[in-house]
Design a protein around this nucleic acid. Structure first.
Lengths: 335, 335
DNA sequence: GGCGTCTCTGTTAACGCTAACAAAAATTGG
DNA sequence: CCAATTTTTGTTAGCGTTAACAGAGACGCC
């Protein structure tokens, strides 16, 4: 099937030049007479010629493709990141090949990376938000341009990440500033670095205020688990402020509080994380923390490209600061 | 950078065979002695050899990659679809290369398709939910395996799609069955086929019940636009039932109704579409329609693979039936 | 006018793989 | 046990591109 299009030699023949000249025109080589360049371009247009990326990849050793390894691209965070990555890559003339992975264990990650390498991708971005991914990454070949996103801050791998700690600190501080005596936390799964960072930031803010952090309640990012935690929180009269590790957890909490007749923000204030587009339409509108996924995508791609162009660039690190978005789910506590 | 790994000839030398035998082992060719096969496999393992997909793509004319063209992979529907597509493709041994596109106009789509073709993808899936994409698709080369998802049901292009009409009809009927005199509709953007289908289904259900459909209120998928429509609906005392084109619109409507003190479902029933994971935790839990994205992904991939294997297969069509998920946002009207 | 020096273009050889054919080895049958 | 057949292996020739080198003009300078 798929009748193969014309090749470079066909263009060359039509333009009355050698295929090498066509190649030069295509790659913007300087030493080509303007008139020749024009003739070649005309021939390219006339034949509808399209360069063969596979052949180019074969001879140059790499293609204009960036491999992404990601686990669950349905969650809001990863999905946004992926979309941003695609956009940014497209602007730089790169395609993005996604290697979806069921688990972020060593085997799965290695396999996904291998698949990418066998296609000679120019570089690899691994969205590696859990511990098991960290281990896998250290065992990967060192000679491949690779950037980790949302990964382990403690490993010597190029990493771009949202400053979870700062975001969580801001969220918690915002609640303390409103006058709350303490802040409870519904966390994400504790094998996610995002979760750990957010727990950390929450704890830091409380400790800095001389408060003793209550035990965090473990969730799994889902509204369902937020709902379960919310049912417990609703029954605890001393609770006046809750920081949840993401907006979906917050939704579940809001729902549970609503069922128990505890009014938000009058009785209990809630702050989320992610600023999903719907957060402004929760009941009540959710105060949350907005990570800049575009910035993360830009930073990681830039890091990757600099590795690609100039050899391995060592263990760089870039942190993107998130911003607090204040809405109506926070109020001073009643006395 | 990236020291290139061993090639087939290196494996061949180590195993004491010709590179062609290595190729045969790799491709599961039958006529290789078991003992030889083992020696080759051992050599492959020892060298950490990894076949060069670019070289293979060059000689065979296609790579084990499927190109996907999509616009906004942040929306829940497209994101889920993409994730499902990745999973399914991975199971079939294909990688997925995503060509993100800002607009679904002819130029953007063509460019994305061209990029994919230049990498010699085995086939292309276009998530083409808007009118402008339909036009673009007809002008594409006919000799490339291509499947449209969520596309124009009226065009002669292989298409897999959720049965929007049936889903909307079910949602509307569900409200009528509960005893409502009529059902209002907050639609998606009217250049989306999904929206058009859902409007159609809603209208059909009303007409079948001998009712005169009220004018649909146009939204844009976002909770924000749902909120705006909800503000109007809240002020219309005659409104007792609303079907929104997706769950996020429903969220906005719920929020507006709540603000206006109109209780759901006691005064007004609401049904959404998509069954986002959070829908069960809206206030109140949202009755909605769940499209099976996995099924869509499987069907489209299967369609694509059959085209790839057996030449172009003509204008196939497959429709996936969605399922109504009943929750608490629907109740009989008060009298 | 001859000669070095640019600028432009062409020729040749890879890149790593598969396909097609050729040869060798193993197997079968009489 | 030898020829015919089948199975297994090797050899050669591309796939379409870029890189390295070589050659051909054009141009300036002594």
């Amino acid at each position: 099937m798929a009748v193969h299009g014309p090749a470079m030699t066909d263009v060359a023949r039509l333009a009355g030049v050698s295929h090498q000249t066509v190649s030069r025109v295509l790659n913007g080589h300087p030493n080509v007479r303007e008139q020749t360049r024009l003739r070649v371009r005309a021939a390219i247009a006339e034949l509808g010629y399209r360069p063969n990326g596979a052949a180019r990849a074969l001879v140059t050793g790499r293609s204009q493709v960036i491999g992404v390894v990601a686990q669950n691209t349905t969650l809001y965070g990863p999905a946004s990141l992926l979309a941003a990555l695609e956009q940014t890559a497209a602007e730089e003339g790169f395609a993005v090949s996604v290697g979806s992975v069921r688990n972020l264990d060593h085997r799965s990650i290695s396999a996904a990376v291998e698949r990418h390498l066998s296609h000679r991708v120019a570089g690899i971005v691994v969205i590696a938000p859990v511990e098991s991914a960290g281990e896998a990454l250290e065992r990967l070949p060192k000679d491949v341009p690779l950037v980790t996103v949302d990964g382990d801050p403690s490993r010597p791998v190029p990493l771009v990440t949202v400053d979870q700690v700062a975001g969580a600190r801001a969220a918690t501080q915002h609640l303390l500033d409103a006058g709350h005596r303490t802040v409870w936390h519904v966390s994400g799964p504790t094998d996610w670095f995002d979760s750990v960072g957010r727990i950390d930031g929450w704890r830091q803010a409380l400790l800095a205020a001389g408060l003793d952090p209550p035990p965090p309640m473990p969730g799994d990012w889902s509204a369902a688990s937020g709902y379960r935690c919310g049912q417990m929180l609703a029954r605890m009269p001393e609770v006046t402020a809750v920081f949840t590790a993401n907006d979906h957890l917050a939704l579940g909490v809001l729902r549970a509080l609503h069922e128990f007749g505890r009014r938000v923000p009058h009785e209990i204030s809630v702050v989320g994380f992610d600023d999903v587009p719907e957060a402004a339409y929760f009941i009540p509108p959710l105060t949350t923390v907005r990570p800049d996924f575009d910035a993360v995508a830009r930073a990681s791609l830039q890091m990757l490209l600099s590795q690609i162009e100039s050899g391995i660039g060592g263990a760089l690190r870039q942190t993107i600061a998130p911003a607090l978005v204040a809405r109506e789910s926070v109020a001073p506590p009643r006395h």
